[in-house]
Each structure stands twice: as C-alpha cells, then as structure tokens.
Design a protein around this nucleic acid. Structure first.
Length: 207
DNA sequence: ATCGTCAAAGAGTGGT
DNA sequence: ACCACTCTTTGACGAT
C-alpha cells in the first residue's frame, strides 16, 4: 500500500492485500487458512473445486427450511474470482455467465461475490483515507501550534500591542486588527527588524 | 475441551 | 444492475 499525498488534492494508491498469489500467506494469518475448505477432503485440485460447491449447492436445494447454509468458496474459486476482479471490477452478463459456468457456481453467487468484493474494497479505501486524514489533521495541528508560538513571540516584540498583528501578504502592510489604519506607519519601525518572519507567519490576512 | 470474541465472507433485502 | 445495509455462518484464537 502506498499513500501519496499530493500538494493540492488527496491521492491514495491502495493495493488490496486480500489476494496473495503465494499459497501460504506470511505470518500465518487467518486468511490463508480460511481459503482451505475444511468441509472437503479433495483428492485432486479439480475435485476440490467442484466437490465443495456441489456439496453446498445440494444442501442448499435440499434444505426446505429458511435456514441458509453458507457455502465456502474453494481456494481455486476464490483465486479465479479475485483474478477476474483485478481485471475488471464489474462483469458483463456474458462474463458473469461464463465465469459462473467455469466455476460451477450460480450466476447469482458470482454476482453477489463481485458486489461484496466491490463494497469491501471501497470500505478498505475509505478506511485508508480516514487514516491519512487523521494523520494530516495531526500535522496541521502541530503546525498550528508552532505558528501560535511564533505569534506569541512576535507579540512579545511589541509589548504595547494588545490586539493581533496582521499583515497583508500583497502589500506587506502590518497593522493591528483593532486599529488598522492609524498604526500602519507607526508599526513599520517596530516590525521592520522581524519583517521576514512576519511575512511567513501572517500570510493569511489580506487588506 | 469449551466458551466467548472477533474478523471475514456469503447472502438477503430494499432503495435508486 | 448496482449499492448500502444488514444478518448469518464460519473459523481462528485466547482465556479458563
């Protein structure tokens, strides 16, 4: 995952970690384990793929009650769905049909899988954005704190001033907020020594 | 061993 | 058709 803040806009580049091409995920997390369908004892890869689904579908169709039996996709099914998702986040009706046929799933299952996958990838993206904004907020807070300190220092240079100093970044005129015009010339002398600093810290106020 | 908790994922429902 | 929201099931894991 890479978060790359732009100067003016927020830009995130996120790679979804849920799909790992390697058979064993590092750190032995839940996901790698979960990909194995323990309801099945497949003899071959193909048996594994088809068997689990058929079993689940049989149970589904046989259960007259409303209790739904959740099927777990096999490793291969998940893998192929994931690869399709990487190629395109949406499916045409034909792609859906072909994929469903190939994976021996219903079109509805493929459709739901893609729906959930889109939703969860969006959620992940939102969470990352949130994290990034939190960090950004933190750094802005820190920046604000430093600027406040600087303002205090500048105020200390002019003990008589009781109101906030402001400077127009265009004309670089310094004035008290409460006493704008009359003090402009007067303060020129007091502030001239720290003019460069004032220009930086007071850039937000305009005439 | 079992119980509680949690995250992940499959699926249902209603709105657009 | 798609999305947001929700429920449900499943499996891992830690505490006891």
């Amino acid at each position: 995952m890479a978060i790359s803040p732009n100067s003016s806009s927020l830009e995130l580049t996120i790679s979804i970690p849920s799909f790992s091409p390697s058979p064993s995920s590092p750190g032995g997390d839940h996901h790698g384990m979960r990909d194995f369908d323990i309801n099945q004892t497949p003899k071959t890869e193909a048996d594994h793929m088809i068997g689990a689904t058929q079993h689940a579908n049989e149970e589904d169709s046989n259960s007259g009650g409303r209790r739904r039996k959740k099927l777990r996709l096999t490793k291969e099914q998940s893998h192929l769905l994931e690869e399709s998702f990487i190629q395109s986040h949406t499916l045409t009706p034909k792609q859906k049909k072909d994929l469903a046929t190939f994976l021996k799933l219903s079109q509805r299952q493929v459709e739901v899988w893609f729906q959930n996958r889109r939703a969860r990838s969006k959620l992940k993206h939102t969470e990352m954005e949130c994290e990034y904004l939190k960090r950004w907020f933190g750094s802005l807070k820190e920046q604000n704190r430093r600027l406040q300190i600087e303002v205090e220092e500048l105020r200390a240079l002019k003990p008589s001033a009781t109101t906030a100093l402001t400077m127009c970044p265009r004309c670089e005129r310094v004035s008290d907020a409460a006493d704008n015009d009359s003090n402009a010339v007067q303060e020129g002398a007091a502030v001239s020594s720290s003019r460069s600093r004032m220009t930086i810290s007071s850039s937000s106020s305009l005439c």
